[in-house]
Amino acid sequence: MTAPALPDTHPPAQKTWWQQNQQRLAPWLFLAPGIFMFMMYVIIPIFQSVNISFYEWDGLGEATWVGADNYIELMDDEAFYTSLKNNVIWLVLYMLAIPGGLLVALFLNQTVRGIRIYKSLFFFPFVISQVVVGLVFAWFYDPNFGLMNIALGWFGIEPIAVLANEDYVTYGIIAAGLWPQTAYCMILYLTGLNAVDPEQIEAARLDNAKGVKMLWYVILPQLRPATFIAVVVTVIGALRSFDLISIMTDGGPWGSSRVLAFYMYEQAFSEYGFRMGYGAAIAVVLFLIMMIYITGFLYKMYRDERGR
């Protein structure tokens, strides 16, 4: 039921406030739902976490203000340092997925019969769930029937229980994580390689560039956007390494494969946890560490935008 459209007989009236400011307001109106969600689910919870980290609270009863006690305890907590150390190992070693993905992508970037099948096979580990990857690797490492130890047995090496050994366990889980992550980087580089300018390669050929030199000076600079994305997703992947740890070792043996995210979950939500304040304090520390990375990331984005 709309009013019939009548011809406008009045002289052009004074513009309303809405008409005057429409241009400026419209973007904000469109952004409003997004901003609302972002505030509700990201920004406000950050401040809430910081707030909770100053309390001792079991999630049920009264929360008591303890000031910086949680942080002081954290500074004296061996488990915290183990987790921190493991986080660093994860961040460093996970970066291997980038050159690994590049190698596989270069290898697969050829026109051979059935190459699509090979490509999809290489991409397969990224498609299956992390939980399945964790289980597969847990069995692979199994000291009794695991493939790895059977293979080691051929060389007369005693079985190694990777997941029960405090020195090897983190590396074992990272190796499991690298499998899907390499596939992810590979797909990024494959799309990147499609966009490489054939004329530049032609020109480089004429200048007698070959092999590694061609890769380093001609191909890689053109793959910079792909590399950038690969670094971003790999860092994120390393920091959200929670699921593999939970499936493969549950943080063990005796907590030596924990990372900060897992330790936070254990303290705040697991069966024996429910120390919300302490968990929040760990979350705040993790957030600060990520801030370093996020700041760098934002700065680079900003610089790139301006450079354009």
């Binding site: 029960a164 063990g252 043996p253 005796w254 907590g255 254990e266 069966e271 024996y272 946890g273 429910f274 120390r275």
Partner: peptide
């Protein structure tokens, strides 16, 4: 153990026992 001992003590204790056994 994890019913008689408070949750936090139980968690730390059992982790310690696992380490001790190795």
């Amino acid at each position: 153990f994890d019913r008689d001992y408070p949750a936090e003590m139980a968690k730390a204790g059992m982790e310690g026992f696992q380490e001790f056994m190795v």
